[in-house]
Design a protein around this nucleic acid. Sequence first.
DNA 1: CAAAATGATACAATTATAGTATCATAATAG
DNA 2: CTATTATGATACTATAATTGTATCATTTTG
Lengths: 135, 135
Amino acid sequence: MKLITRNTDYAVRALCCIAEQKQEVISGDQLVKSLEMPRPFLRKILQTLNKEGLLTSSKGKGGGFALAASPEGITLIEVMKIFQGPIKLSEHKFKKSDCPRINDCLLKKKIDEIEKEVIVKLKAITISSILKNRR
Amino acid sequence: MKLITRNTDYAVRALCCIAEQKQEVISGDQLVKSLEMPRPFLRKILQTLNKEGLLTSSKGKGGGFALAASPEGITLIEVMKIFQGPIKLSEHKFKKSDCPRINDCLLKKKIDEIEKEVIVKLKAITISSILKNRR
DNA sequence: CAAAATGATACAATTATAGTATCATAATAG
DNA sequence: CTATTATGATACTATAATTGTATCATTTTG
């Protein structure tokens, strides 16, 4: 019942760390040191963020990662989608098939209402808004 | 990232079904028929609900389960706690330990805000409110 | 070419969820 | 008292998601 997984958590922290950096490019190993995360896991996360277009990367000496957009432009929900798929608080499956009462099922409706509000709130959280109050 | 697991889902449906029943007591097997759920799984769920005090049970012929409280008095969050533990949208663990920035970590704070509102909404959902609009 | 970086990808461990199976116990009818 | 019908307790298994690890290839720069 976690809303965010460790994947997402690590990714957000990495994005924050990159955003805070003075140099524009920072290498994976530097991030590992700053964030004290398992190296291969973070590497995979960075690769994914790059593939999904949130980071840019450069190889070779002096290479590394940089934000592809401004910290205001990167939302939490975007990162969540990458690592956890689309937000769906109620799958409401019944064995392999959908709930037979799917149409008049009020439990689903109520969860869906909650989901909508959660999504609105998640969209409002950006890397920049996470960093803002941190010092 | 599901908010409710199948355990909870089944339990809620069973509670609804029991609440709708005319006779006060309904057996596990009758519920299996009505709800089309895996028999041993539902049985376990009913046992748990009984142990946790949401149901009362009686053995032997004519026995079965009945609600221990009125449908208005049983909240969704109560059922979730039983099957999923306390609501914690952000565990925010860092390997085995807590996030080192735990105190000034704004990501956690923001998730916590969302969590609070979700809890309020979950508390407002009762068996009775789920049944209400169903016919 | 060597070193420093990322890219791709396959594999493994752990945990949570979902489900099954079995035997014990209690209540009731006859 | 015994057969039947019901729940109680509990141990086991299967599946999927999460959380990692490991390895080799490729690109860039000096």
